[in-house]
Simulated assay, not measured.
Amino acid sequence: MANAQIQFENFHKEILFGYDSSQELRDRRDTLLADLKKNISKDAPAYIHFTQGSYALNTGAHPNDGNPDMDIGILFECSPEDYPDPLKLKKYVRDALERHNRTVDIRSPCVTATYHRGDEATHHIDMAVYSSNAADQTQLAWGRDSTPREERIWKPSEARELTDTITNRFSGNDRDQFRRCVRALKRWRDLKVGHKNTPSIGLTVAAYNWFVARYDATDGKPRDLTAMHDFVNAMLGRWAGSRLYVYLPVAPYSDLFERMSDVQMRDLKGRLETLRDALAEAEAQPDTHEACKTLQKQFGDDFPVPEKSDTTKLASAGVSTSGRSA
């Protein structure tokens, strides 16, 4: 059996997108925060900021379209009752960030600063605006300029708690393998799923729920191929009727795939079945070269295929894999 572990780890290095791997995005983030501090209206309440999303979770994959993003939370020291129209706080943020080298737009869940090179967007940074209610639960400012007043509301959203919950789910080598597999699945999504309603956080929380780290029972080394196969199989096994439900483990506990239509859900299931079968085929293949050719068809050209060897690369006789708890 091929395990293709070296190739999985090299693939991970190629697609990894984290805080340490993008100096440009770090610089843009620091500039945005400096501009916000310098230019925000004196009428705005004090605030703190924090990183959220895949940067905070260290599960970011370089997007296939080349337009990476970063998520930042801006938590104002006020209550929702102080600003019954949450758009007012979002306008404070937008007005402080507007400059000639970026476009700043208020979207329903956030304020987005987009950077361009010519007519092409190169990357963007999303700033979600929060306040805290009397129970110290963070509330997300929801709405844009065109949103009717009655629909501009505060929504429960525990972004920092979500980061802590997912980060603490695994540790050590288990956490490393979890992150590699999540990034691989995100790249697969970018390549194979032709719609935008399969969110990255949905895949990450699915892994939080059902991923199990796998290791070689003989030498104890990680086996990402087996872990990926088992994880995809577990996702498919969780389908309820025509849909897969993946709920946030923190408030608002919503279904992360709720925006997917039934047609999109069927498409996702079919593509996951194809991925599962490809992973099983690669796992059963005694030749690493041939196994990686199969995997490359699912994960794209960044997944390396080693040179063809005169001898097949067989796994050690009698080797099995084992799971370890987080």
Rank of each mutant, 00 (worst) to 15 (best):
K308G: 12
H123E: 14
C181T: 03
N58I: 08
D145F: 10
T204L: 06
P286Q: 07
L256W: 01
D310C: 14
H116T: 11
A227V: 08
F211R: 00
T59W: 03
W239R: 10
F8R: 00
R117A: 12
R144E: 07
S320C: 09
P68K: 05
L314Q: 13
A217K: 10
K297P: 01
V246K: 01
E273G: 10
L162T: 01
D287F: 01
P286F: 06
D230E: 15
G53M: 06
I125M: 05
L314E: 15
F178K: 00
T103C: 09
M228Y: 05
P286G: 01
T103G: 07
A134T: 11
V232C: 04
Y83P: 00
L203M: 13
I40F: 04
R271N: 13
I72F: 02
I74E: 00
V232S: 05
E77T: 07
Q177V: 05
D176L: 13
D174N: 15
H124V: 05
I153P: 05
T312C: 11
I40T: 06
G202M: 02
A206Q: 04
V93R: 00
L75A: 08
T138W: 03
P252N: 07
Y130F: 15
Y92R: 03
N173R: 13
D27I: 10
L279F: 06
N209S: 12
N209F: 05
M228K: 04
P252A: 06
V246G: 03
K42N: 14
P109C: 09
K186R: 14
L248W: 00
D174K: 04
T226N: 06
T312Y: 12
R324Q: 13
V193A: 06
D230P: 01
E150D: 15
H12V: 08
F231P: 04
V111H: 02
G237T: 07
R214E: 09
N64G: 12
L272F: 07
D105R: 13
C292Q: 00
K155H: 12
R102G: 05
L32I: 07
G202V: 00
T167D: 14
T204C: 08
Q285N: 11
I48A: 13
Y19T: 12
D216S: 09
R99Y: 10
F178V: 06
I153T: 13
D95L: 06
H49M: 08
E281F: 05
P84A: 11
P156Y: 07
Q139H: 12
K308A: 14
Y130N: 05
G237P: 01
T288D: 02
